[in-house]
């Protein structure tokens, strides 16, 4: 017998009797009066920032003002091509992204309770981009905020896409004496822009 069959057999032999149903997930929870504000507070509590803008020009200005020292900028947003300095999808090898200062990516929606953003970009070739960039801007369509993870997971499915993730704020660690340090291995800054 293969190890697979041995393991499955012993689990079948040993498994407790089947007596419980898989519960429906129907958790009632508080609703947020101002969901944008809740998202912003949640995100800032984990070290990120949320900003709300009206048009792409505003975003460009914001980037010019706040990310002046970012030299290598990548993005798959067509509207931002003028400020992009490197085409992340042009290379076959994600290691080539090691010098990216700022990645501007597109998120699908935010989650108010924890400041997380769901990202599953069909346009992006390398998932490494999300983690290797020194700084991250995530652009989300206005009003795309759900209250909790329950609503979030209702929206998710994995078809042909083989990677998706929630990002909540910048990378961080507290492994040295529980001191919270922003910027462990991933982005040291994460900004979420709603447009």
């Amino acid at each position: 017998m293969s190890s697979r069959d041995i393991i499955l057999k012993s689990i079948k032999d040993y498994a407790p009797s089947k007596s419980s149903e898989l519960p429906n997930i129907n958790i009632s929870h508080a609703s947020y009066e101002n969901i944008n504000e809740k998202f912003s507070t949640s995100l800032s509590s984990v070290g990120g920032i949320a900003v709300f803008m009206e048009n792409i020009e505003e975003i460009k200005e914001y980037i010019a003002e706040h990310y002046a020292d970012s030299k290598v900028i990548v993005s798959n947003c067509e509207n931002l091509l003028p400020i992009v300095t490197k085409d992340a999808n042009a290379t076959k090898d994600p290691h080539a992204l090691h010098d990216v200062d700022l990645a501007i990516i597109e998120g699908e929606f935010g989650v108010a309770e924890n400041g997380a953003v769901w990202i599953m970009e069909p346009k992006n070739r390398h998932r490494a981009l999300y983690f290797i960039a020194q700084k991250l801007i995530i652009i989300i369509p206005k009003n795309e905020i759900v209250p909790t993870m329950h609503e979030a997971y209702e929206k998710l499915s994995f078809g042909t896409q083989n990677f998706g993730l929630f990002i909540s704020g910048p990378s961080k660690t507290a492994d040295i004496e529980q001191s919270l340090i922003i910027g462990a291995h991933g982005a040291i800054e994460t900004c979420v822009i709603f447009i």
Binding site: S42, S45, V46, K92, P94, V111, E113, N114, G115, A116, R125, H126, R127, A128, F131, M149, F158, Q161, N162, F163, G164, L165, F166, I167, S168, G169, P170, S171, K172, A174, G186
Partner: peptide, 19 residues
């Protein structure tokens, strides 16, 4: 675990990277 609302990254792997 740490009293955070969620971890910074919650990655869902459903397949390998390119090639």
């Amino acid at each position: 675990a740490t009293g955070q609302p969620v971890t910074s990254y919650t990655s869902h792997y459903h397949g390998p990277v390119e090639d």
